[in-house]
């Protein structure tokens, strides 16, 4: 699902809603055609609704306990 160019942010260890704020800020400046890779310490269920409404596709991989990688791309 991902394009060749990617941006990466690490929001592990930040209290809510800082991870959400940083991800949204990154998405607002994400160039069309690029993807955002997010490292996060819990599965952000409320984010998925916003991604759906915003027309993004995403894929979540559990790396280990308390460590997830979410790949977000334009649909």
């Amino acid at each position: 699902m991902c394009a060749s160019k990617t941006q990466e942010i690490d929001v592990r260890g930040l209290p809510p809603p800082e991870p959400f704020e940083l991800i949204i800020n990154a998405l607002q400046t994400l160039p069309v055609g690029e993807c955002l890779h997010v490292h996060i310490h819990r599965e952000p269920y409320p984010l998925y609704e916003v991604l759906l409404d915003g027309g993004f596709l995403w894929h979540t991989t559990k790396i280990e306990d308390n460590n997830f990688l979410i790949r977000i791309c334009y649909s």
Binding site: P16, P17, E18, F20, E21, I24, L27, Q28, V50, D53, G54
Partner: peptide, 20 residues
């Protein structure tokens, strides 16, 4: 502050919402 942020943000990606 969380409620204020949450209710301003509700419904999608918007510019102009202050950080919590």
């Amino acid at each position: 502050p969380f409620l204020v942020w949450f209710h301003l943000f509700r419904g999608g990606i918007k510019r102009g919402v202050p950080n919590m």
